[in-house]
Amino acid sequence: METNRIQKPLLLTSYLFEYPSKEWWEGVPDHAAAAEEIERPQSREVFEEFFGYVKESDPQAFEDAYVRAFDFSQNTNLYLTTHNRTDFGKQSEEMLRYKQLFLDAGYDLDRELPDYLPALLELAAAVPEQEAQHILSEVRPKLELLRDRLIEAKLPYAFLLDVVLTEAAGLEGRTAS
């Protein structure tokens, strides 16, 4: 299978957007070490700074902030079809489109909804670059909206979406040629 050069940044971003469970905290050192291997210097720096922030954080305070940011906020939750939710028919169509992205790549979700950001990032990391570019272009408007809302909320996770959007733009340049 063709390798996916943005696999590591996508997987690290997915990891950092996951709930900070006990197992998550145990994985921080290994994931922080993997961040040092990121090719793009700007992306590597974002991960190194974010992991530095994580390591300096009190686990309970970090978890509380995570819950406030993603579980209790409609504006910044990680389910992409809930943003700008005024038309439930449109939301259902989007959900089906996201589900189709997984099915087209040969995956099916049994524990998560297909619009869950970490799952979409993992999917894009698991497929060849051409398919990753398609997936990321499908979700780009939602990623940009979430990024803007994270900036408004002054949450450091916005920088992680900058990495995804930058890596996706770089991928578009490579697959277009």
Rank of each mutant, 00 (worst) to 15 (best):
F88E: 09
K99G: 05
P41L: 05
F50Y: 10
N77K: 04
F50S: 01
Y79G: 01
G106Y: 14
A119Y: 00
D104H: 05
A105Q: 07
R85Y: 09
E49T: 00
L171D: 11
A34K: 15
I38C: 09
G27E: 10
L11R: 15
V163E: 10
A69M: 09
L143E: 07
P114H: 07
A168N: 04
E152N: 05
S43P: 09
S57D: 07
R149W: 09
N84F: 05
G173I: 10
D115K: 03
E36D: 13
L101D: 02
T175Y: 01
F72E: 06
R149Y: 08
L160W: 04
V67A: 07
L146W: 08
G173A: 13
Y66I: 00
E131R: 09
T82G: 11
Q74K: 07
L11C: 13
E152L: 08
A126I: 06
P20G: 10
A69E: 02
D87N: 14
V46K: 08
A126S: 15
E112H: 13
E138H: 08
E144W: 04
A61S: 03
K55L: 01
N84G: 00
F17L: 15
N84S: 02
L16H: 11
E93M: 09
L117K: 03
A169W: 07
Q133W: 14
I6S: 12
A35E: 10
L120Y: 05
P20L: 12
P141M: 11
E37A: 06
L161N: 11
E144S: 10
Y116V: 04
F62M: 01
S43Y: 03
E49F: 00
E36L: 12
F62S: 00
L155T: 11
Y157Q: 14
E152R: 01
R149G: 01
G27K: 15
L80T: 02
G170S: 10
L146Y: 06
S57Y: 00
E122I: 04
T166R: 14
F88C: 00
V127A: 03
L145C: 12
Q60I: 07
N84E: 08
P128V: 09
L78V: 06
Q133P: 02
V127M: 04
M1H: 14
Q133K: 14
V139K: 01
E56R: 09
N4S: 13
A169M: 08
K90H: 05
L123M: 09
A34H: 12
R40E: 12
D110Y: 11
Q133C: 12
Y79N: 07
R111P: 01
E56F: 01
D148V: 04
E167H: 09
L145I: 13
R68H: 05
G173M: 12
E167L: 06
M95T: 10
K142T: 11
Q130H: 08
L78D: 01
